[in-house]
Computed example of a mutant assay.
Amino acid sequence: MFNYTMRRLLLAIPTLLFIALVIFLLLELSPGDPMADMPLTIPPEIREQMRLALGLGEPWYTRFFKWLYLFSVVEPSHVLASITGLENLAIDGQRIISFQTRSPVGDIIAQRLPQTLWVVGLSYLFGILVSLPIGIYSAYRQYSWFDQAGTFVSMVGFSLPTFFTGPLLILIFSIWLGWFPIIYDTTLVVDSWYDFALQMRQMAMPVFVLTLYNAAQITRFMRASMLDNLTQDCVRTARAKGLTERVVVLVHVLRNSMIPVITVIALGIPQIFTGAIITEQIFRVNGLGQLLITAIYATDIPMVLTLSVVFAILIVVFNLIADLLYAVFDPRIRYD
């Protein structure tokens, strides 16, 4: 498995380089000017100097390779220095600067990441914890009232988009009932139980919206995979050998059923870091999803490029993790 993992990681390097180049070229060809938000009273010569200060006067390939060096060498050193507390690990010099805020992109992402992890991360965790037992029991008790109710709720959660359920919850629980705040307060500092209660109140609606959507998707996959494996010959053989129903379901059926579900869960984990763009916009959560949208509107090429490549890296990494987990759940799979 070690050799397989190393081969996949080595193959991921040219793949990610190609993805970064394609994204950079698309941003270069897209309409928009980073200087468009500047006041019109700025003289043309000053505007041109500002463009040169942002590096926009250099050829595209020069800017791409500069960004690639900063992204792969300089920014990781600052991340490592902030994690370990050893400031001497950070490489001095130029960093990836956002056109919009004139601040390092890595620092902005680090500021926004906790908000995204709190809201999107908790909703994904709750979605997994809710969907797996519902999908397992619904398949085992097929066509029962529990299965019918679970199928109905999952269909509703999967069919209704978050831009509908979000405003609906705001209308009911914020405007009509007044239970939860409409706007997510990202400046809230949790240093007491009262502030913790306020944080839970403002997280309740966005977390519920995303949990409903994630749980509905995973429940459908879990139920379908369980139904497919419940009719296998190995299951009938296990029952004929006198194994208890608990062992048959939780060992023989569940272990094989988790293989396709692992793919769905693993490939959904990068969405935790990318942020829920629509939900964050609705509830004004100052996370990475909203950061990406504002960067696109402002033609902030360094921010959009960095976030997009980070998302691509996460997808490649968790895709590899899903492949490695196959061997854990299915002993027939061997990579070496």
Score class of each variant (00 low, 15 high):
Leu243Pro: 01
Leu171Arg: 00
Pro14Ser: 10
Met35Glu: 15
Pro167Leu: 01
Ile218Ala: 06
Met200Pro: 01
Pro114Cys: 05
Leu26Asn: 11
Asn3Glu: 10
Tyr326Thr: 09
Pro161Val: 13
Tyr4Arg: 07
Pro31Phe: 07
Val190Tyr: 01
Trp145Ser: 08
Ile83Cys: 00
Leu10Asn: 08
Glu28His: 14
Ser192Tyr: 03
Thr263Lys: 00
Val189Ala: 11
Gly85Ala: 07
Glu45Thr: 11
Arg47Asp: 13
Ile175His: 03
Arg284Ile: 02
Asp107Ile: 05
Phe164Gln: 03
Leu292Arg: 02
Leu52Phe: 09
Leu70Phe: 13
Asn286Thr: 00
Trp179Met: 03
Gln271Lys: 04
Trp176Gly: 03
Leu291Gln: 11
Leu288His: 04
Gly135Met: 01
Arg47Leu: 13
Pro167Tyr: 06
Asn229Arg: 00
Thr84Asn: 07
Arg201Thr: 00
Ala36Asn: 14
Ile128Cys: 13
Arg8Met: 10
Glu245Ile: 07
Val309Gly: 08
Leu210Tyr: 10
Met38Asn: 14
Leu212Phe: 09
Val253Gly: 09
Pro206Gln: 08
Arg47Thr: 11
Leu117Gln: 02
Ala238Val: 01
Ala266Asp: 01
Val156Ala: 06
Leu70Gln: 15
Asp300Thr: 12
Leu9Ala: 13
Gln199Ile: 06
Ile23Cys: 12
Tyr140Ile: 01
Asp323Ile: 02
Phe152Pro: 00
Gln290Glu: 12
Leu56Asn: 02
Leu117Met: 06
Val328Ile: 14
Ser123Asn: 05
Leu125Phe: 11
Arg7Thr: 15
Gly166Trp: 04
Leu267Ser: 02
Ile321Met: 05
Gly127Trp: 05
Ile23Val: 15
Trp145Val: 12
Tyr143Pro: 08
Arg246Gly: 02
Thr219Trp: 03
Leu17Ala: 11
Val74Gly: 14
Ile321Gly: 04
Val119Cys: 06
Pro31Thr: 13
Val310Asp: 05
Met1Ile: 12
Phe273His: 03
Phe65Tyr: 14
Lys66Arg: 15
Thr151Gly: 13
Asn3Ser: 12
Pro44Arg: 11
Thr279Trp: 04
Trp176Val: 04
Tyr143Gln: 12
Arg223Ile: 03
Leu9Asn: 04
Pro44Gly: 07
Ser131Val: 05
Gln111His: 01
Arg284Gln: 10
Thr15His: 08
Val304Lys: 04
Ile301Arg: 13
Thr186Trp: 11
Glu245Cys: 01
Arg95Ile: 00
Arg63Ala: 12
Gln49His: 08
